[in-house]
Design a protein around this nucleic acid. Structure first.
Length: 940
RNA sequence: GUCGGAGUGGCGGAAUUGGCAGACGCGCUAGACUAAGGAUCUAGUGCCCGUUAAGGGUGUGGGGGUUCAAGUCCCCCCUCCGACACCA
């Protein structure tokens, strides 16, 4: 392949014809991008090393969290992670790996549907347009993706398999004894043979067909559950807990969300809580993400304890501190606890303090008043107002271990959603209980001895038990064990583990999502659409008009408007019958739960992924847990996407569809690019591009403005687009700058003025190898001199090391140093050195590297060349300069041979003129010699 | 409040096993080339003292400690970012 003719137009400004500027860069880039497509440069197969004449290449699966194709286009912050994975993938490919790297689109979701509601344009049309635009912007960056493997979650050929996976989950139950999912047919046998008890009171043998279906439905991993859900009228849908903010608003759009019970599809992710927690240990993820997942799962160990009441009903509480049972002085229930009405006393007893009555004439009245007051508080108000309130319900229960009668209260600091919704109040050892007890004059009994100088209220640290009968003197852990043993022996309770994690609400009342492959017959019970009838395609829908909804209205799934589609005829083995389709759609998370598996085998019509191909890419070669070798994305998916995908993967693993228990072996969180934003004195954001700096102050059109940093975007008027950078410098410069700004996992501020530095590097590299006037290579085929040889190999070693560790900023710094040396020398660059420099640059700036490679006389692509390897013999210098310290301060330097002995070094150091001046007249107390590092002389 | 992460020049950041702090880049200063330079090239650039220089002092959020030697290890404190937030 000949070097292309890319000469700049000779104009009166006398820029040399082949100066590496934005114009030349753009021509080089577009030219190579076309050739890559034509040559299939980035196509990858599983057959690495399968041919006898090809060396075995280990696999490497590198992946980005795929994007939602937004309509507003990219800014320079978006591709940071994509560039990082691209550089890494290219580097690893050059070091002998068979690298899989591609990109897809998470294309279902609310914005396209909102767009349809406003414009009437079908979400599919809008989505495809956005994908095309985004693809164009990304292509221009020169990302080395295997495009044949790209998918969009909205492709019918993709969501067919999303539906198929849903059916796998629907057809499964979780065997707690073996801690894994199994086909529901196996459960049926166990229930029929009596090896497992049914969940209802009736034995399997006594059930009719409908009862049996209900029984099985109660075990499924995907089930219809009546549960309090987050109803968001503004979005017209219910949301998962994970999609609701702490303020009780929708994460998307910040609309009010109301809690109400509804029948919805749920995923039994709670069955996997322990495995999701335990397997975190084996993942190469940051500690912070692991911690977030641990917190979300929220495992706590303790005991469930039954408190008897005079009405014969027991109140069950969960506690992590069974050792404090003797300190229980009250029982506190959540206001909505189901036992409240049954335990309510007729009237106040004489001795009930007025404080406990809430000003009401009877307990019933007090409870009613309290409940209505509590329900009026928003979650936010509950948070802001932490003072404890509650009312006595007139009755008492007994502390099992002591028989002591304690009053029962309801209080809104006890949450129905956690544990059993009831708390044994131990003010001595729990600050919340202390606060409540002191507000309502409830007795306080300490059961752990605080230290003598303790001045706080509740004492939560360790210490010997007191006032606790048989526990007295025991430390917390021993006391817990003894108490649990006592409870179990006497039938008052048992060891128990609870989780904060709830089952995953899986229904959405939206159009633009995957339809459920579910139909209902006349019993109202769910049936699976047979696999061979997948996919269940979305109907066309023309009516996008929004419906006015409020807190009290029922969600209206848009699919209900597709009347013909909503009923369907299937033969489920008893002849064709008409069924009603499920009208909800799946949440956006569904498609992103398994896309990495489809990348492996995107056009397979028989299976969601071929088992051989799955095993090839997902099995760790070095004994790791397996999965994607490097997964790069933002921290915002710490809980939602990453937990859901792990859950699905584990189900698929249990059912034998994938080879390992985890989807993502190594997770890396890239930082975000921030940009300066400027506000005038009214607080209005002004166009950041037009702000001028003067002596540390900022001015816009003459007026002073203040600077803050934030996400790039329209609202802060601080966006810089990749297209701006392409036209000013070219894509390679943008890539290089983004990688040079700092380590990949750190947030960093964008500075357009600094981009020039990265451009200059490329310009100097170009000029060192290419005649700017003629475009000819200026290199000469001569041996590299020894000094340059050493520098080259030291550079290779450092660059390789930095690339392995994703420290691309350091790799670029080392390459710059090498190039700076070449710039200083007036001699032409030796060919071999030039080639190695180009190869080192290739992962970072592939276009200019290809161009230089071609101009150095090569006809093949640089993409599949080997990365240079460092010659260990050249890494060590013959002689080095060592600092000589006196009392820890550098006072001189000596040049010594590398293999000088410690004794020689000491002698040389002491003989140094400056050192002898400083040491004369002082006693030398000690000389520390660290060969190849330094010498320190300690004088008195 | 709890948990997680981080504090290094004017700015982004290097220094991954304790061993020359500030690599590399931006910016800034001076110079070269130029009709011109917001292009390009060359040199300098932590701060303070020292006319230049030689040299000295000081310096990695603050305070203490270990060590011949600390950005790095230990203790206490401060600040910032992120997550969770009455989870019993």
């Amino acid at each position: 392949m000949n070097a292309p003719s890319l000469s700049n137009d000779q104009t009166e400004d006398s820029v040399p014809g082949y100066r590496y500027d934005a114009q030349l860069a753009s021509r080089i880039e577009e030219d190579w991008q076309q050739r890559w497509v034509a040559d299939g440069t980035y196509r990858v197969t599983e057959a690495a090393g399968a041919d006898a004449d090809e060396a075995f290449r280990p696999k490497l699966f590198v992946m980005d969290m795929f994007p939602y194709p937004s309509g507003s286009g990219l800014h320079v912050g978006h591709p940071l992670g994509y560039i990082g994975t691209d550089v890494f993938a290219r580097y690893k490919r050059m070091t002998g790996f068979n690298v899989l790297h591609t990109m897809g689109y998470d294309a279902f979701g609310l914005p396209a549907e909102e767009h349809a509601r406003q414009t009437g344009e079908h979400p599919r049309v809008n989505t495809e347009k956005n994908i095309a635009n985004m693809q164009r912007q990304l292509d221009r960056l020169g990302l080395g993706h295997d495009k044949d493997r790209s998918i969009a979650t909205t492709d019918v050929s993709y969501y067919r398999w999303t539906q198929w996976i849903f059916l796998q989950i629907f057809h499964s139950w979780y065997d707690v004894e073996e801690s894994r999912a199994k086909p529901i047919s196996e459960l049926e046998e166990l229930l029929a043979s009596g090896e497992r008890d049914t969940k209802t009171v009736k034995p399997w043998a006594d059930m009719d067909a409908v009862e049996r279906r209900k029984e099985l439905d109660a075990w499924r991993l995907a089930y219809l559950g009546e549960a309090p859900v987050n109803w968001c009228p503004a979005l017209g849908t219910v949301l998962a807990n994970e999609e609701v903010t702490a303020e009780g608003r929708s994460e998307r759009g910040n609309h009010p969300v109301f809690r109400r019970p509804m029948k919805q599809w749920m995923m039994r992710i709670t069955a996997y809580a322990d495995r999701l927690l335990g397997d975190l240990e084996r993942l190469d993820w940051t500690e912070s993400i692991k911690t977030m997942q641990r917190n979300w799962i929220g495992r706590s160990e303790g005991a469930e304890i039954s408190f008897p009441t005079s009405s014969g009903i027991d109140i069950d509480v969960f506690t992590t501190r069974p050792d404090t049972l003797f300190g229980t002085t009250a029982m506190v229930l959540a206001p909505e606890h189901p036992l409240v009405d049954e335990l309510l006393a007729e009237e106040w007893s004489e001795e009930t303090p007025l404080l406990w009555r809430g000003g009401a004439a009877t307990p019933a009245e007090a409870v009613e008043q309290y409940r209505s007051a509590a329900s009026e508080l928003t979650d936010l108000e509950r948070q802001e107002n932490r003072s404890k309130t509650g009312v006595h319900i007139g009755s008492y229960c007994k502390v099992p271990v002591s028989g002591k009668a304690v009053p029962i209260f309801i209080a809104d600091y006890v949450l129905m959603g956690y544990g059993t919704g009831a708390v044994m109040s131990v003010p001595g050892q729990d600050q919340r209980d202390w606060d409540f007890a002191s507000a309502y004059d409830v007795e306080i009994v300490r059961t752990v001895q605080p230290p003598e100088n303790f001045s706080g209220e509740a004492y939560t640290n360790d210490g010997p038990a007191i006032n606790s009968d048989f526990l007295d003197g025991l430390l917390i852990e021993e006391a817990k064990t003894s108490m649990i043993a006592w409870l179990e022996e006497h039938g008052h309770g048992k060891r128990m583990v609870t989780y904060k994690l709830r089952d995953w609400l899986f229904s959405r009342q939206r159009y633009w999502g995957e339809p459920f492959p579910i139909i209902f017959d006349e019993t109202g019970l769910a049936l699976a659409v047979p696999e061979e009838h997948l996919p269940v395609e979305l109907p066309e829908l023309m009516d996008w008009a929004p419906r006015a909804l409020d807190e009290d209205s029922d969600p209206e799934p848009p699919l209900g408007r597709a009347v013909e589609w909503a009923s369907a005829s299937y033969d489920l083995g008893d002849g064709f019958k008409t069924y009603q389709r499920e009208l909800n759609t799946m949440p956006q998370w569904a498609g992103s739960c398994w896309y990495y598996l489809r990348y492996l085998d995107p056009s397979n019509e028989e299976k969601f992924v071929s088992p051989d191909i799955e095993r090839y890419w997902m099995t760790s070669l070095d004994g790791g847990i397996g999965g994607v070798d490097l997964y790069v994305g933002g921290v915002e998916h710490a809980v939602l996407h990453l937990l859901y995908a792990r859950f699905w993967h584990k189900v698929l693993f249990d059912l034998g569809h994938v080879s390992g228990p985890e989807p993502f072996q190594r997770l890396y969180n890239q930082g975000y690019i921030q940009a300066a934003a400027y506000q005038d004195d009214r607080g209005v954001y002004v166009d950041a591009e037009k702000v001028e700096e003067n002596n540390g102050s900022f001015f816009y059109e003459g007026g002073p403005v203040s600077r803050t940093f934030g996400k790039m975007g329209k609202s802060l008027k601080n966006s810089v687009t990749p297209d701006d950078m392409y036209s000013a410098y070219g894509a390679d410069t943008l890539r290089l700058y983004e990688m040079f700004m700092g380590p990949l996992d750190q947030d960093r501020p964008w500075e357009t003025k600094s981009v020039i530095g990265s451009h200059r590097l490329l310009q100097r590299v170009w000029r060192n190898l290419i005649n700017e006037e003629t475009g000819e290579a200026t290199v000469v085929d001569v041996p590299i001199d020894e000094g340059s040889q050493r520098l080259l190999h030291q550079t290779i070693a450092s660059v390789a090391d930095a690339m392995e560790g994703l420290r691309f900023n350091s790799a670029i710094a080392r390459i710059t140093e090498l190039n700076n040396e070449l710039t200083k020398s007036s001699n032409p660059v030796p060919l071999e050195l030039a080639e190695k420099l180009v190869l080192m640059l290739a992962p970072l700036v592939p276009h200019i590297a290809e161009e230089l490679w071609a101009r150095l006389g090569h006809s093949d692509s640089v993409v599949h060349q080997s990365f240079p390897s460092a010659d260990a013999g050249l890494l060590v210098e013959d002689s080095i300069e060592l600092p000589v310290q006196v009392n820890g301060k550098v006072r001189s330097r000596i040049v010594v041979s590398t293999d000088a002995s410690p004794d020689e070094l000491e002698t040389l150091a002491l003989a140094d003129e400056r050192i002898s001046q400083l040491t004369s007249g002082n006693q030398i107390r000690k000389v520390i010699v660290v060969p190849k590092k330094m010498i320190n002389i300690v004088i008195s």
